[in-house]
Measured scan of single mutants.
Amino acid sequence: MPVRRGHVAPQNTFLDTIIRKFEGQSRKFIIANARVENCAVIYCNDGFCELCGYSRAEVMQRPCTCDFLHGPRTQRRAAAQIAQALLGAEERKVEIAFYRKDGSCFLCLVDVVPVKNEDGAVIMFILNFEVVMEKDMVGSPAHDTNHRGPPTSWLAPGRAKTFRLKLPALLALTARESSVRSGGAGGAGAPGAVVVDVDLTPAAPSSESLALDEVTAMDNHVAGLGPAEERRALVGPGSPPRSAPGQLPSPRAHSLNPDASGSSCSLARTRSRESCASVRRASSADDIEAMRAGVLPPPPRHASTGAMHPLRSGLLNSTSDSDLVRYRTISKIPQITLNFVDLKGDPFLASPTSDREIIAPKIKERTHNVTEKVTQVLSLGADVLPEYKLQAPRIHRWTILHYSPFKAVWDWLILLLVIYTAVFTPYSAAFLLKETEEGPPATECGYACQPLAVVDLIVDIMFIVDILINFRTTYVNANEEVVSHPGRIAVHYFKGWFLIDMVAAIPFDLLI
């Protein structure tokens, strides 16, 4: 008679799926529990143990900040960024110097990925580790590398530091407007667009060049630039800015003055950032001319202004700041037409079709709590990747769950009947059967004279019903998954307890 339990259901295979997918890609990662103190490590794979030199037993239950890997060259700011990422709910990448158990130093890129439950609360953290440099290539500990984003994938490793954006290309926007319009339909740009040429040739750093990471940081200074100062900065030398009595002219307006920039070969870094931020506020060169004239017309309804409409929906549905990093990277690809469009465009503009998908598509409701890094690593669709929660398995109709209350009560009843059979069957065979043979035949009273025979008949009927119930009862397979398919249940029961239950259900007393 089957006594099969499996009270692990309803099970959740999400954690096993993450481990299996990460292991298949030869990654070095740990999984931490966000619900406990210090976000203790609950799993670390073999790749991480080989990377740091510690065994799994030495890593388990330690804080996922990996303070046991810190050393003299470990930056405090990087460690603080990892700790801050564990307090938030967004994906974050941090470069930090770690030390192995043998004392060797290596520069590592740590990717902190939160995993949320159905309520939107962070319950786990996945920390992925990628070695960037070994100890002989690690720089000085005073050099802070965590304020910069990861290198873009479309640049060669040897040319990542030679990417320079020439400031004269930004200063000569109005001069290039006529050349853009003359391109017409034969050019790649839309009317009114501004073409910015980027020099990728390796050259020595000069005062006129600005690194790509500095251009990325310009967006942080746009908020500090007032509207009046932006307007004066875009007017140009024809209309000098008016300053109040006793007030000095704005240095932001002076930063885009061609006369002032041409007199000296070098520009201050602050002026460069502010000038680029001011130019980015204009949607095209037409807006710059309109600002000089004193009238700013409404933005025209053409394809170039609607190019950012799908980007707005993608940004609203993005799951991490990696989408913004990807957008900034692609927006700086050289030799393309940049349409400086305000994100607050007309909502009635139709979304044009684009061959290049900048932001990841909208994630469906079932995966809105899973970050983009987890979705990318697992390579699963929205119909396959579940949320991290207890999910009731989908069972067929008329199927009994093996952990249901009805099955528990039924098993206790069958257990009592088995005990009765084990006690009274030998007793009936030894004593009652002998008395029946010696006594007179009682054929007239039937079952009324033999109450134990009636009980034995009921017990046999219950055993037959138990066999039928076992054909529709779920079970737990070797992978700790609840199986509810009727065919698989029948095959599993035939290979197991079916023969024993059938022999126990045969009414031998009635056959004798």
Rank of each mutant, 00 (worst) to 15 (best):
R5T: 09
H7I: 08
A9P: 06
Q11Y: 12
N12K: 12
L15G: 01
D16F: 10
I18H: 03
E23R: 01
Q25P: 11
R27Q: 09
R27V: 07
R27L: 06
I30N: 01
N33W: 03
A34H: 05
C39I: 12
V41E: 01
G47T: 06
G47Y: 06
F48G: 01
F48R: 01
F48Y: 01
A57I: 07
R62C: 07
R62K: 10
C66F: 07
L69V: 01
H70T: 07
G71K: 01
P72I: 01
T74W: 01
T74R: 01
R76D: 15
A78F: 01
A79D: 01
A80N: 04
A80Y: 06
A83E: 09
A89M: 14
R92M: 13
E95A: 05
R100P: 01
K101D: 01
G103M: 06
C108N: 01
C108P: 01
L109R: 09
L109N: 15
D111R: 07
V113L: 14
V115W: 09
E118N: 07
E118M: 11
A121L: 06
I123L: 13
F125R: 06
F125I: 05
F129H: 04
V131C: 12
K135V: 07
M137L: 15
M137D: 04
M137R: 13
S140G: 08
P141K: 15
H143D: 08
H143F: 05
T145V: 15
H147P: 03
G149H: 06
G149Y: 06
P150D: 09
P151S: 09
T152D: 05
W154D: 15
W154E: 15
W154R: 05
W154A: 14
P157H: 09
G158S: 15
G158M: 12
R164E: 06
L167R: 05
P168I: 01
L171H: 09
L173T: 15
T174F: 13
T174W: 15
A175M: 04
R176K: 06
S179Y: 05
S179V: 06
V180T: 14
S182W: 05
S182V: 06
S182F: 05
G183C: 06
G186Q: 15
A188K: 05
G189D: 05
G189Y: 01
A190S: 05
G192Q: 12
P202F: 01
A204Y: 01
L210I: 06
L210P: 07
L210E: 06
A211P: 06
L212N: 09
L212T: 14
D213L: 05
H221F: 15
V222D: 05
V222H: 05
G226V: 08
G226P: 07
P237F: 07
G238C: 15
G238D: 15
R242S: 04
A244R: 12
P245E: 14
Q247G: 12
Q247N: 03
Q247E: 15
L248F: 14
A253R: 11
A253I: 08
A253E: 15
H254A: 12
H254I: 13
S255W: 04
N257S: 11
N257A: 06
P258Q: 06
D259E: 14
C265Y: 14
T270D: 12
S272M: 09
S272L: 07
C276E: 10
S283Q: 11
D287M: 07
I288Y: 15
A290W: 15
A293M: 15
A293I: 14
P299M: 08
S304D: 09
S304G: 08
T305M: 11
T305E: 14
T305A: 14
H309D: 14
P310N: 07
P310R: 07
L311H: 07
R312N: 11
L316A: 11
L316S: 05
S318C: 12
L324Y: 13
R326S: 12
Y327H: 06
R328N: 12
T329I: 06
T329H: 14
I333N: 12
I336D: 09
T337R: 12
T337G: 12
L338C: 15
V341R: 15
L343Y: 07
K344M: 12
K344F: 06
F348V: 11
L349G: 12
A350K: 11
P352N: 07
T353S: 10
T353Q: 13
S354F: 07
R356L: 09
R356V: 12
I363Q: 14
R366N: 07
H368G: 05
N369I: 11
K373P: 03
V374H: 15
V374E: 01
L378V: 03
S379E: 03
V384E: 04
